[in-house]
Structures are given as C-alpha cells and as structure tokens.
Simulated scan of single mutants.
Amino acid sequence: MTIASILGSKGRDVFTITLPQTLLEVCSTLREHRIGAILIVDDKGKLAGILSERDIVRRIAEHGPDALQADTSECMTSNVVTCSLQDTIQTAMARMSEGRFRHIPVVENDELVGMVSIGDLVKRRIADAEREAEDLKNYLYAS
C-alpha cells in the first residue's frame, strides 16, 4: 500500500499558515481545526516548516507561559522530512519512527499534496491485516 491510497480515502486537505504568527495564534488554529501539527508555507506556498503540539509543549516547558508570545519561526522544524505519493506505508512509518515524529507532509514535484499522521498509517495497517486474516480464513474454510 502507498501513501496515495491513504490520501485517496482520507483526503488531501492540509492546514497551513504563513509567518509571522505567534505560538499562541498557532495554538488557536490547532484547536480550531482539531489537528496536532500544522505546516508552515512561504508566500509562494512552498513548504518552509512544520510545528506540532509537542514542539509547543517543549517550548513552554523551557521558557514558561511567555513562550506563547514567541514567533513560530523560533520553534518550528524547518528541515522537514517528507514522503511522496509512491512511498509505501512501511517507508513512511520507518521515517516517522526514526525521526520520532507523528506527522509527515506528502510532497510531489515540490508541491505539498497532503499530510499523513502515524494514526492514519496504523489504521490502514490494521485494516489490511484484518482483511488478510479474513481472506485466509475464507480460503481455509472454502477448501
């Protein structure tokens, strides 16, 4: 299974912001859309960074509540690990496990085309395993 198959079922909607924005403003956006990470794009729509709830919590733990007034650019990850539509679910999961992050943007021909979370990937892996088990059970009982 590929990342394209996941985006085909969940959709390609991605929430993005442009800078400047404070962490407090980003927190409001995350809450409003019920998401755990947001992508930062430049004025041409190119991926410039990613910011997750974990990044914000880490910043608050280091600097206290005043951290929420900081500019997002001070806290975001700008060297973003991405995947493509053709990547397998296993490949994306390996990148996420290695980097210890839970969201990965999907980029095709330098264009942002979606984002998947570890939850999306695990959900698909479980569905695939259940389908395979059912197929095997049907095959054994049909013999």
Results as ranks from 00 to 15, higher is better:
127 A>N: 08
6 I>N: 02
107 V>D: 03
88 T>L: 04
18 T>I: 14
72 T>C: 15
97 S>C: 12
54 R>F: 11
83 C>M: 05
104 I>H: 04
102 R>E: 00
62 E>W: 07
140 L>N: 15
4 A>W: 03
118 I>N: 02
117 S>Q: 04
114 G>A: 04
17 I>W: 05
82 T>R: 05
99 G>R: 15
138 N>I: 03
110 D>C: 13
2 T>S: 09
88 T>A: 00
71 D>Q: 11
74 E>A: 13
88 T>M: 03
5 S>T: 15
70 A>P: 10
141 Y>V: 12
72 T>H: 01
112 L>C: 01
51 L>N: 00
80 V>I: 05
97 S>D: 14
37 A>W: 03
43 D>K: 15
115 M>D: 02
1 M>V: 09
23 L>H: 04
93 M>H: 12
123 K>D: 12
43 D>M: 00
20 P>G: 10
102 R>S: 08
137 K>E: 13
105 P>M: 03
16 T>R: 12
90 Q>V: 09
13 D>W: 01
38 I>Q: 01
105 P>G: 09
104 I>A: 06
128 D>H: 02
123 K>I: 05
45 G>Q: 11
121 L>W: 07
8 G>A: 12
137 K>A: 14
52 S>A: 11
11 G>I: 05
49 G>D: 01
64 G>D: 09
112 L>F: 00
8 G>F: 04
112 L>P: 03
64 G>R: 10
8 G>K: 13
108 E>K: 08
17 I>M: 03
11 G>D: 11
88 T>P: 06
44 K>L: 15
128 D>Y: 06
98 E>K: 14
27 C>H: 04
15 F>V: 13
102 R>Q: 05
7 L>I: 10
113 V>K: 11
14 V>W: 02
121 L>D: 00
41 V>M: 08
58 R>I: 02
43 D>R: 15
106 V>H: 02
136 L>Q: 10
2 T>L: 09
